[in-house]
Design a protein around this nucleic acid. Structure first.
Lengths: 192, 192
DNA sequence: AGCTAGTGAATGAACGTTCAATCAATTTTA
DNA sequence: TAAAATTGATTGAACGTTCATTCACTAGCT
């Protein structure tokens, strides 16, 4: 846990956790404020509206994910190794911060998300694009557009994490097999 | 389009479309009623609460998906062929009924969804399980648990459909490559 | 003193839900 | 058969609550 920097971050973290449990509509602004230790009105010195807060929260989380994954990537390594590391980092990030995963999923499937928003400058998307581009460039990946490759990979990570979240109990039997998922994805996207 | 059977179905369809556009919270019961051509109070002769309506809607949609996909499956065919047909049917169902896809995504990532609900009897999940089991049994798929295989496949379908929904314009460049996604998934899960 | 940040009670709109009244259809009675 | 009674679905105005947002006021800092 990094130290809380400013009040905005405090509000973000408070909102994240509440939204994970209760969803957007189930988390009143007043509650976000209270959990963050401030009064309801204070939220409006940092955001113009609840909607704006949620939009900024989305950008905040995306940046955090980018920071985590990009820092741990080592472009010197052979691409296959980078891929498995990437998979691992993203999966464990989501598993260790369930509020990230939950919020992102809720957000992208909500009316907050629009084609315009998705196409606006998106550092995480850009980083992903470059990552898979490099994989293609060095001949490790099938010569497909980075977007298509990202679809494959991110989709599987999300499904896997969701599965683990909803079937915590049942997973004893299949836990051993879970490590095979990145291998399968790799088999699907690798060249030859 | 099948003819509208009863008022419940009418309410379901009305709710589906409204939720697709405005989300759960953005669609008041009164609006669902109005679009269905009934008064607000009428909704409560069919459902005990808005929440209950949404839970039933979830089951309704899952059954529709199951009906569509299972009817079109032909167990006589070689498994690889069944797999590509399955992929195709599920993808085009979601693309042709955006409200299905949108509602299901919103639902599963919302607080409505619980581990208990996911583990309660689920015909669609059961059908999927059997489908992939058969693939393993005939030696077409890697010997993994059906759940794991389902994660891989469904995850990619969802990501693909979501991508197409949010990047309608950009897809000209990559559209040709999209057909390669099921092929990649197949490469990942097939035996040897 | 002046300024900024923070407070939290107050406001008003929106929403889920209720319920007395209405209506259409069906059954009973004469 | 015709009138009367019964039934149950439907209506929509009204209720109570919740919540986002505002704002007059306060606290703390320089």
């Amino acid at each position: 846990m990094e130290p809380i920097q400013d009040k905005k971050t405090l509000l973000f973290e408070s909102a994240l956790e509440l939204i994970r449990v209760h969803g957007f509509h189930g988390t009143p602004v007043s509650r976000v404020a209270r959990e963050a230790g401030v009064a309801a009105g204070t939220v409006y010195t940092y955001f113009n509206s609840k909607d704006e807060m949620i939009l900024e929260l989305y950008k905040y989380v995306k940046l955090k994910v980018l920071a985590e994954v990009s820092t741990k990537d080592n472009p010197e390594l052979p691409f296959q190794q980078r891929f498995f590391a990437f998979w691992d980092h993203l999966t464990s990030l989501y598993l260790s911060k369930p509020a990230f995963q939950s919020f992102m999923e809720q957000f992208v499937s909500s009316p907050y998300n629009t084609p315009e928003l998705q196409q606006s400058t998106d550092l995480w998307g850009a980083w992903l694009g470059k990552f898979f581009e490099q994989g293609v460039a060095v001949g490790a990946l099938k010569p497909l557009s980075p977007q298509i490759l990202a679809i494959m990979v991110i989709g599987s990570v999300i499904s896997l994490v969701r599965y683990l979240t909803y079937f915590k109990s049942k997973t004893q039997s299949v836990k051993g097999e879970l490590t095979q998922i990145p291998q399968m994805v790799w088999d699907g996207i690798k060249n030859h």
